[in-house]
Design a protein around this nucleic acid. Structure first.
Length: 471
DNA sequence: TTAGGGTTAG
């Protein structure tokens, strides 16, 4: 078998995204270590050990083994193989969950004299932004001597994900050159900060205005996904029209209906109540991932087609390729609650952990309490709350309180309402529900007391309103 | 050989 360094390197580069092969190749590299460190190598091969380690580090990072990538770096240093600017970007990304490791790598970067490398700088910028250190990210950005579009886009994204849209837009306006990533970052930034209308406006501007270099910027799949997600989060005809228009672009431009775009379209149509469109997109997709099924099941569950949502879950399991995740169970349990499938819901909840390896979190408890509460099983719901492995939050208690109102359970409702009041910042919702429970049972004195308590706490009931959209 | 943007629940 040929174990020359060149051959191993070729193998590594070829199979860089195959985790199983990577560990085999790593073993081969270890057994061929003497080849890497041959002091008699000709001078044109001296850089090979560095390239070797760089490739292995990248391979482990991209295959989802960040710890191994970092371990390899220590081997590299121990073997006195000098790291270069290519070594650090994958290492910095592998250290993203540990700020202290990030600092150590920063020290190494300075020691190896590659601090001014734009790739290294941009990776640090992204790392600091991910850890929420916008000041540090900005500092790195300001120290980049020759700014390129990639570094600017990374800074745009840093501002957006840390909620500073003003700085993001200001930087965007000042950029000498922009591309589809710059535009998509801003659109997604507005969406991420809840300003969906502005996200849609920005998309409209992108589609109709020439950019700084006098050209129209063509959206890609990421852009469509961002704008569809914004449309899905808004109500009204404008949002529906906009999303439909995006779907139109996708069809007209023969954009591949991949997992991201397809899932976003399903979610959009589901949230708009256009179930038939959602199902049609789902059926057209060649490839579906868990999130695709989740979006479809949620859409059916929240549009009165609970039985179909349950059937869809069965289809997903029958296909066998994908494992339901935490979100899948929120969607299916929601379907059970709304469809009054109490037995099925409880069985499913019971099997989550054992059969599917998904440990129930707060959202799942919320669904089950809703499931039992709607069906009037208030005692069972209370038992589950009292035996939860963690303290129930407002959504779980709120689900039970809502059920108490529906079923006129005054005492339990008062108890849960009080617990909610202790848990939450003052909010009129609980007071109003509590007060309504009492009023419905003609316990006017209690109802009046609660309303008074509410006013004293400085809370005013938000008046109900309805809106007519005029076009 | 190395750097930037995206989907599902609540």
């Amino acid at each position: 078998m040929n174990h020359s360094p060149e051959y191993l390197l070729q193998l590594l580069q070829r199979f860089i995204k195959h985790p199983k092969l990577i560990s085999q190749l790593h073993s081969l590299v270890i057994t061929s270590a003497h080849l890497l460190h041959n002091p008699n190598s000709p001078s044109h091969l001296k850089w090979k050990p560095t390239l070797f380690y760089n490739t292995l580090i990248t391979a482990h990072h991209t295959s989802g083994f960040p710890h191994k990538a970092l371990l390899l770096f220590t081997h590299m240093l121990a073997s006195q193989v000098p790291p270069n600017s290519h070594t650090f970007p994958p290492l910095i990304k592998s250290a993203s969950s540990s700020p202290s490791l990030g600092t150590s790598l920063h020290t190494q970067v300075i020691k190896r004299g590659v601090l001014c490398d734009p790739f290294v700088q941009t990776t640090f910028l992204v790392l600091y932004a991910r850890n929420g250190s916008l000041v540090d990210a900005r500092k790195v950005f300001d120290e980049i001597p020759l700014l390129c579009i990639v570094a600017c886009n990374a800074m745009l994204h840093a501002f957006c994900t840390n909620g500073d849209m003003e700085s993001a837009v200001s930087l965007f306006r000042g950029m000498p050159k922009r591309d589809v990533v710059s535009w998509t970052s801003i659109i997604n930034g507005f969406a991420g900060n809840g300003e969906f209308g502005k996200a849609i406006q920005f998309f409209g501007k992108m589609m109709t205005h020439k950019d700084v270099l006098g050209c129209l910027v063509k959206p890609n799949e990421a852009t469509y996904v961002s704008v569809l997600s914004s449309c899905a989060n808004l109500d009204g005809k404008t949002a529906l029209d906009c999303g439909k228009q995006v779907h139109g672009y996708v069809v007209a431009n023969e954009v591949n209906l991949g997992v991201f775009v397809g899932t976003s379209l399903i979610d959009f149509y589901g949230k708009m109540g256009c179930l038939n469109y959602a199902v049609s997109v789902f059926n057209q997709m060649d490839s579906r991932e868990v999130c695709t099924w989740n979006a479809m099941i949620s859409s059916l569950a929240s549009n009165g087609r609970e039985k179909e949502a349950m059937d869809m879950f069965e289809d997903m399991k029958a296909e066998g390729r994908l494992r339901p995740n935490s979100i899948t169970f929120v969607a299916v349990l929601t379907a059970c609650a709304r469809g009054r499938f109490v037995r099925e819901g409880l069985d499913l909840f019971g099997s989550m952990s054992d059969v599917f390896g998904v440990v129930p979190i707060m959202e799942h408890y919320g669904c089950v309490i809703d499931l039992l509460g709607r069906a009037g099983h208030l005692g069972e719901a209370t038992d589950i709350i009292n035996n939860m492995p963690f303290q129930p939050d407002a959504s779980v208690l709120g689900a039970l309180l809502g059920a108490c109102r529906i079923h006129g359970a005054i005492e339990l409702g008062e108890e849960i309402g009080r617990r909610l009041l202790e848990l939450q910042k003052p909010h009129c919702g609980q007071y109003v529900v509590l007060s309504s429970i009492n009023a419905e049972k003609e316990r006017w004195d209690h109802a009046a007391d609660l309303r008074r308590e509410m006013m004293e706490a400085g809370i005013q009931k938000i008046p109900a309103y309805s809106m007519v959209h005029l076009t």
